[in-house]
């Protein structure tokens, strides 16, 4: 299954040509320089340090001080200015060293419904004993999570990303940054942790569960009087067809019994692709998803029939996850035609 990048978050505009081209180049360059891996240790080849806006403000203050010192020919003020300028040179090294040697690892991802937040479990750890402070991690455009590594050498945390489209979705690069210690420099990197989210279809109100199973009470089968299988004997009542009288037993001197037959009908709950004709693939999946959730809430056993996939009815959280995963992994558009509209497996 081809994984998709999250179009809703990283909107690649093809309209503004040059910027798009530059962005693509930067992305390609980053991809080369920082290849995807579940576990990335930050070092000089991955980290970039730039002054922040506050840092530029600091420079303006320095300029003011320098003018003051120069115009008044005041050596002490000039000295202080140079001291702060020295600080401005020294700080980026501290900023860099706050992130250098930090390892970010993907521990796993949690599935989510489209339109909700998918959560990645991350772990961050440091090399050496030097504490690391105020490390911000975020998906582009999202609110950062701030992490410190003070006494403990490692910590785990979650990063949520809104996902819009169903499927196996590749997460964008995680931004990691820190402007420790003075906030005048920012050290950052974009890490491709090769995280993939399983995104279930967005549930759309699908109405009541299909088929005439009103309330299941856990029944898997229901019986109707029929002709197929012998089910037992019953006291004969007038009106029972004579064909069904248990003559054998009667001959042995017993009372008159009537044989009872049953026929089985598969009345287990099936969530079937074919119940929803005439809608597009994603809508069908969304509706199935809603049914599955409803059935799970009502603690019914239910199965799933979609093209190329059949899951036997069952109950429980694990089963629900299996069903949702099948829905999530359903091929994306374009793969639809060969399946046909009614092609249940």
């Amino acid at each position: 299954m081809a994984s998709r990048s999250i179009a809703g978050n990283v909107r690649e505009s093809s309209s503004d040509g040059l910027r798009g081209w530059i962005k693509a180049r930067v992305k390609a360059w980053l991809g080369k320089r920082l290849p995807p891996a579940h576990r990335v240790t930050l070092d000089h080849s991955r980290l970039f340090v730039f002054p922040t806006r506050a840092g530029l403000g600091f420079l303006v203050i320095l300029l003011g001080l320098w003018l003051l010192g120069t115009n008044y020919e005041n050596n002490v003020i000039l000295g202080l200015t140079f001291l702060l300028l020295g600080l401005f040179v020294v700080v980026p090294l501290h900023t860099f060293s706050n992130l250098s040697g930090v390892t970010v690892a993907l521990r796993g991802t949690q599935p989510a419904f489209a339109g909700e937040h998918a959560v990645a479990n991350l772990r961050i750890e440091r090399r050496g004993k030097q504490p690391r402070e105020r490390i911000g991690l975020y998906w582009p455009g999202e609110v950062p999570v701030e992490v410190d590594l003070l006494e403990k050498g490692s910590t785990e945390f979650q990063l949520a990303l809104p996902v819009l489209e169903r499927g196996l979705v590749s997460a964008p690069r995680v931004c990691i940054e820190s402007s420790f210690p003075l906030g005048i420099f920012r050290c950052w990197s974009h890490l491709d942790l090769d995280a993939k989210f399983l995104v279930y279809p967005r549930p759309l109100p699908a109405g009541p569960l299909p088929v005439g199973v009103a309330s299941g009470e856990g029944k898997e089968k229901s019986t109707i009087a029929g002709m197929d299988d012998f089910a037992g004997l019953k006291n004969f009542q007038p009106g029972h067809p004579l064909k069904q009288v248990a003559w054998k037993q009667y001959a042995r001197g017993r009372e008159l019994y009537s044989k009872e037959f049953e026929s089985y009908r598969d009345e287990r709950l099936w969530l079937d692709w074919d119940y929803l004709p005439g809608r597009d693939v994603e809508t069908r999946l969304s509706l199935l998803c809603d049914w599955a959730l409803q059935a799970h809430r009502q603690q019914l056993a239910f199965g799933l029939r979609i093209p190329n996939k059949l899951i036997e009815p069952d109950k429980g959280r694990a089963h629900l996850n299996k069903i949702l995963e099948a829905l999530a992994r359903f091929p994306v558009r374009g793969a639809r035609d060969p399946l046909g509209q009614g092609g249940a497996a």
């Binding site: 579940h38 690892a105 993907l106 521990r107 772990r123 995280a195």
Partner: peptide
């Protein structure tokens, strides 16, 4: 350690 920490 790797088996414990990798998402694989």
């Amino acid at each position: 350690q790797h088996t414990r920490q990798s998402p694989d």
